[in-house]
Write a protein that binds this DNA or RNA. Sequence first.
DNA 1: ATGAAAGCGCTAACAG
DNA 2: CTGTTAGCGCTTTCAT
Lengths: 343, 343
Amino acid sequence: MQTKGSGAHPTPPAAVTLHDVARVAGVSVATVSYVANGRTNVRLSDATRLRVQKAIDDLGYRPNALAKNLVQGTSRFIGLVADGVATTPFAGQIIHGAQDEAWRHGFVLLVANTESDPQVENEAIDMMREHQVHGILYSTWYHREIAVPSAPNSSDMVLVNCFAPGSRARAVVPDERQGGRVATEQLLKQGHSRIAFINTTWESPARTGRLAGYRDALAAAGIDFEPANVIDAEPNQEGGYGAFEQIRRLDVTAAFCHNDRVAMGLYDAVRVRGLKVPTDLAIVGFDNQEVIAAHLRPPLTTVQLPHYELGAAGVRILLGLDPVPAGTVTQLACPVVQRDSDG
Amino acid sequence: MQTKGSGAHPTPPAAVTLHDVARVAGVSVATVSYVANGRTNVRLSDATRLRVQKAIDDLGYRPNALAKNLVQGTSRFIGLVADGVATTPFAGQIIHGAQDEAWRHGFVLLVANTESDPQVENEAIDMMREHQVHGILYSTWYHREIAVPSAPNSSDMVLVNCFAPGSRARAVVPDERQGGRVATEQLLKQGHSRIAFINTTWESPARTGRLAGYRDALAAAGIDFEPANVIDAEPNQEGGYGAFEQIRRLDVTAAFCHNDRVAMGLYDAVRVRGLKVPTDLAIVGFDNQEVIAAHLRPPLTTVQLPHYELGAAGVRILLGLDPVPAGTVTQLACPVVQRDSDG
DNA sequence: ATGAAAGCGCTAACAG
DNA sequence: CTGTTAGCGCTTTCAT
């Protein structure tokens, strides 16, 4: 049993360094560096290699990533600044996707939450740059257009779930139009031809994109677009509930809702009238918000926003694994998740 | 207009260093370091101070945090390892709270998602240690007991939303018992005295704690505990829906549900019978899962799990701002969020 | 096959 | 008041 200091307070283990290992193994630090990094292109006798490895294990040597990064002039950090982690489960998915992908390539995520405060945002970006991040993922919790933050060089920044026209920053966003199309097609496939669309009142890529997709699907099926069949409502349960009155006056058998929350409200309204989903009204949602969609009665057929993939694609683009030119906006497909509400 | 290199590819800005600033300002690196760090205890003439500051601004100098951390032997990193960011919105709140608090003290969050894979978990912890993190927050997405990961020294690790009996690691968790008590008291306050409790079938601190709290509240109100009034059900919508049959056979006017999802299912069952919340049955939930609770009809009175505070308290404990002895488990109160379902 | 030494960008004594 | 200098822990030529 060794005594070190007074032994009263457990002295911070005082990190063992390359030098310590070198001394114990009776070799130079360079040699230790080689075997620690498993370099095969340098010739070392098996004898020393083993001896050094043993010393490393015995001492429990762990490299100091800070020093390593400093000398190499580059870190294994990727910065992720998000405008709101709290608000929805969605942001969590983006982080998750980014984290997994980064990890896979030996990178670590440095996250900052800004709550859309430009002040905080700039500080966060500065801070990340000071930490020599490889690049920055700038993400928003809902798909929207942004003004790219005052970054010196936006070439090492990729936008996730948002885009900035005119910026050189690359972006990756969900394909709202394709999503709107497959949602509608799902209803069409079930034999519905008179389909209402409860859109949101919020101007956004989701609003225009999903509407366009709805029209695409109708057109492809040879069905005339009926403007009266699209209703605007607040994108929440109350909106969906309230929209029912208009729906019932329409000659439709199905409704495509802007999101799952709207669908949930609509379910409510349908049931209050003693009606049934999907026999009296077939419903398709959007978002695949699992708390809701998977547990409504009947479970809701919906379209999934590819948040996880957005995060993952973001780091792939950042790392140059998915080579895309500056300024490109990559669109990711939104798959439909079929359950039982589509008729 | 200056020319540098061929100008074809935008050369990576080649980071300006202390030396560059020193050269331009005509002073030594030490001096620059002083003013860059705003040191007031060293005496510098206002003249040089200004001159240096100007050079810093002109060149757009940004300190290299890696180098700074290296020489100081300590970083401004806090590691956060989570067992699941994706599954619920809850984990996001923990991250958010931790991030805010860390930021407030000049620290950055390094996050890793492990999906409960012990392999990944260890790698994540190692990686963080290599990056010289100040300490590690180990968090779980639901409150539970864990075996503390094989960490060399758990003194710099704090457990968030989980605990490890026998470990020296400090922990911070929600006070389930107090939560169960206030939920029940809320119903009591509204005049209900015959109250059912739909508990979860999953053995967990939430299950035992909330039940204890329910009994506490009853006892304090001088009401006998009736074992038949507690029902076990799966902690989701289906469980709540199914529990109604048992509830109706009970002589109760209110139900406290293990969580909001159960409450949502129960709402459904109540409505299917043509009954009404809260007149026919008052309901209180748990979790305050906003997508559900705020938008049910009527909006759900519930108890909030302090996830944000858990994250924040975790970093405060880690940083020694909230001094607690090793091995301590800190409990955080769960506030009730009153809406309209409690009668 | 291995070691010596320079230096990454920065801080902190210590001189002057 | 300000400059010189010695490292922090590590990688990497370049000698030997």
